[in-house]
Simulated assay, not measured.
Amino acid sequence: MKTYSLKFKQNIPISLDEAWDFFSSPLNLAKITPADMRFVVTSDYTADTKMYAGMIITYKISPLPGIKMNWMTEITHVVAKQYFVDEQRFGPYALWHHQHHFKEIPRGVEMTDILHYAIPYSIIGRLANKVFVGKKLKEVFDYRVKAIEGLFGRM
């Protein structure tokens, strides 16, 4: 199984407390995901729900027009105001391990996403990653940069 890695950094002009409050709320993920993916959190959480180790989050997502999928992740690690990790338990990937790191910097927060993922189906999965999946993931993270700038401003 071939594993792929992506790393993204973004500086955000908000306090560490504000960053943690926003990104540790599962419902806010939909606010920074492209609308064409029809991303919906289906877990029964409220806007006040904060993540914790062991938390299961379920979603519906449409990675391609006309294709709808269920996805389940577990928050496996949380160190408040430093990092959290979500791992897929059910969904489209053979492996999904996504780290979210937060570091206070002058005038804001540096947020770093580190993603390790693998596609099932051996050579077909490698081809799918080259043709579509890798590009789509980059598009999603590029969109997030713009969405976060729209919500919090730009440094």
Rank of each mutant, 00 (worst) to 15 (best):
D17Y: 01
G54Y: 11
F102N: 00
F102S: 01
L29K: 07
T33G: 02
I105M: 09
Q82Y: 03
W96M: 04
P120I: 14
Y117R: 05
Y117M: 04
S122H: 09
F22L: 08
T73G: 03
V40P: 01
G134S: 14
H101P: 00
H116Y: 13
Y45L: 11
S122Q: 11
F84V: 05
L64F: 14
I119S: 04
Y52Q: 15
K130T: 08
R38D: 09
I67D: 00
H100L: 07
A30M: 02
N129F: 06
I105H: 09
P63Y: 02
H100A: 12
T33N: 00
W20M: 03
I75T: 13
D113C: 05
W20P: 01
T58C: 10
W20G: 01
F39Q: 05
N70D: 15
E74M: 14
L127E: 02
L27R: 10
M69D: 02
Y121E: 01
K130I: 00
S24F: 02
N129I: 03
A35W: 04
M51C: 07
M111N: 03
P92V: 09
T49P: 00
N28D: 10
K7N: 11
P92S: 08
Y93F: 14
D86T: 10
I114P: 00
A94Y: 03
T49L: 01
F8L: 06
S62L: 06
Q88P: 03
S122W: 05
K50V: 04
V40C: 13
F102W: 01
I75S: 08
V78K: 05
D21T: 07
E18C: 10
A80Q: 09
H97M: 06
P92G: 15
Q99P: 00
T42F: 05
I14Q: 08
A53E: 15
I14R: 06
H100F: 12
I56K: 13
N70K: 14
M69Y: 04
H100K: 10
S43V: 12
A53D: 07
V78W: 10
Q82V: 04
A47M: 12
Y121I: 02
A94F: 03
A80G: 01
I12F: 04
V131W: 14
K138D: 07
H116D: 14
T49M: 00
K9I: 06
Y45N: 04
M37K: 14
Q99E: 15
I124C: 06
N11A: 10
G91I: 07
Y45G: 00
P26M: 08
A80C: 04
D21E: 13
Y83K: 12
D36N: 15
A47S: 15
L115I: 11
I32N: 01
G134E: 08
S15Y: 13
T112Y: 03
S5E: 10
I119V: 15
Y52K: 14
H116M: 09
